[in-house]
Each structure stands twice: as structure tokens, then as C-alpha cells.
Amino acid sequence: MDAAADLFKILGSSSRLLLLHLLASEPCGVGALVERSEMSQPLVSQHLRTLRQSGIVTVVRTGREALYHLADHHIAHVIDDAVTHVLEEKTLDKGEIDEHD
């Protein structure tokens, strides 16, 4: 449980979630992540360092280029499930009926 709680602490940043969402679709370099996330390069690098140190992302270097990848597909599923859950809650908050009721 402690390891899972630590994972959720790392995933508790909307900026890191966005970067992971982008990496779930394809491996990216820092420049592409800066452009797509609209975050500054130092901020993207800081978050990638945290994600790399925690083992959530890996980096493959080819010459001067470094591509970041999700370490495994489970992270993408956790993020997708969380986003789906939040969107379902928003739909329910708008007055729609829950099928489980």
C-alpha cells in the first residue's frame, strides 16, 4: 500500500499527468513535450526528472537526442481510468441519472 500511495503522490500533479498523457500516445523528446504541454522547458525537465527517478518513465538516448517513454502501459491505464472517473462524476453532477441507481 505504501508503494501505491507513493505512486499517487507523484501522479498528484496535473502537470505530470499531462506529460504522462502525452507520452502515452508516443515517446517524445523534451522539445516536443514543451511545445505540446505549453510548459516551460525547465518545468518539463523538472517533472521528467521526478518521473524518471520514480521509474514511471524511461529515457532512451540516441546520440544527442533523448526520447522519453512510459515505463509500462499500466500507468496509462491508471491515468485514463482517473480521467474517465472524473468525467463521469461531472456528468452525474449535471443531473443525469446514474445507471447503477
Rank of each mutant, 00 (worst) to 15 (best):
H21G: 07
Q53E: 14
I75H: 10
V44G: 01
V57P: 14
M39K: 00
S13W: 01
V83D: 07
D72W: 15
R16A: 05
I10W: 13
E96H: 04
H85D: 02
H73L: 15
E26R: 01
L92E: 02
P42S: 08
S14E: 06
H74G: 11
T50I: 05
G29P: 00
V57Y: 14
K9V: 06
G63R: 13
S25T: 04
E96R: 01
V60W: 10
C28N: 09
P27W: 09
L20Q: 05
R49C: 03
A3W: 00
L17T: 02
V57F: 13
D98E: 00
E35W: 14
H21Y: 09
D93Q: 11
L87F: 13
L33P: 05
L87S: 15
E38K: 07
E89L: 15
P42D: 04
E26L: 14
E88P: 00
T91G: 00
L19C: 00
V86N: 13
H77C: 14
H69A: 11
A71M: 11
M39P: 08
L11V: 03
E35K: 14
L17N: 12
L18R: 03
H47Y: 01
L33R: 01
L17V: 04
D80H: 15
L11K: 05
V86F: 10
G12Q: 02
K9R: 03
A66P: 10
L43T: 13
A4E: 03
V57N: 12
D2F: 07
L33S: 12
H77W: 15
L17P: 03
D80F: 15
I75W: 07
I56A: 10
T58R: 15
S14D: 11
I10D: 04
L20K: 05
Q53V: 01
A5M: 08
I79G: 11
E35C: 10
T62G: 12
Q41M: 05
G95E: 09
R16L: 04
P42Q: 08
Y68P: 12
L20G: 04
D80N: 15
V78A: 10
A82W: 06
S54L: 06
S40G: 11
R16P: 09
G31I: 00
H47S: 02
A71G: 06
I75E: 04
S13Q: 02
Q53H: 10
A3E: 13
L92C: 01
I10K: 11
M39T: 00
A66V: 09
E99Y: 00
L51M: 02
E65G: 08
A82D: 06
V30N: 06
T62P: 06
S54H: 14
L70N: 12
S15C: 07
A24F: 11
V78F: 07
I79Y: 06
A5T: 05
H100M: 07
T91N: 09
T58Q: 11
R61H: 12
S14I: 10
H100E: 05
K90H: 14
